[in-house]
């Protein structure tokens, strides 16, 4: 391995060769010292179950973390999110206490909180499309809305 540093020719191509070897050596070091954890690899394999051709994706169109001016001194300001799928809009507010949301246009809706490929948790929703969850999502989450035959899932996100 010491030949990565053993030559002192300073032509371009030898320099390229040396850096190429060094990069490869570094790649091997990364594979040993900072590998992709097998559990994470598996969770990505399992994520295939989240592939759902029938649901429409509601894109994140507003995120207070990115789109709003920071509030000075407000260390636990709620995270405000807006998702949009065609005519359907969804406003969500996440705090440490939990999550509240409003589906627009207002109306009866069934809402589920997804945390991964595992089964979703149904949230309480009223006839005006308002819903709440008593705990904040930990880790990646998405919301699935059902109105009649229409299914909308928000873009996966973490807060």
């Amino acid at each position: 391995m010491s030949d990565a540093n053993g030559t002192n020719d300073d032509t371009e191509s030898d320099d390229d060769f040396d850096t190429g070897l060094l990069e490869e050596e570094l790649r091997q070091a990364a594979a040993v010292l900072d590998p992709l954890p097998p559990a994470l690899l598996q969770s990505a394999v399992d994520a295939y179950a989240l592939h759902d051709l029938d649901a429409r994706v509601a894109e994140l169109t507003f995120d207070s973390l990115v789109d709003a001016l920071p509030v000075r001194g407000a260390t636990d300001a709620p995270r405000l999110l807006t998702f949009t799928a065609g005519e359907v809009m969804l406003d969500v507010e996440v705090t440490e206490q939990g999550l509240i949301g409003q589906v627009l246009p207002p109306g009866p809706v069934r809402v589920e909180l997804l945390g991964g490929p595992q089964p979703a948790a149904a949230l309480t929703a009223d006839d005006m499309g308002r819903f709440t969850a008593g705990t904040a999502p930990s880790g990646p989450f998405a919301l699935r809305l059902r109105t009649g035959d229409d299914v909308v899932v928000t873009e996966w996100l973490r807060v």
Partner: peptide, 13 residues
């Protein structure tokens, strides 16, 4: 870990 998962969940979606 969470970012890694979020990226793949979104990719599947």
């Amino acid at each position: 870990h969470e970012v890694y998962q979020t990226v793949w969940f979104r990719f599947a979606q």
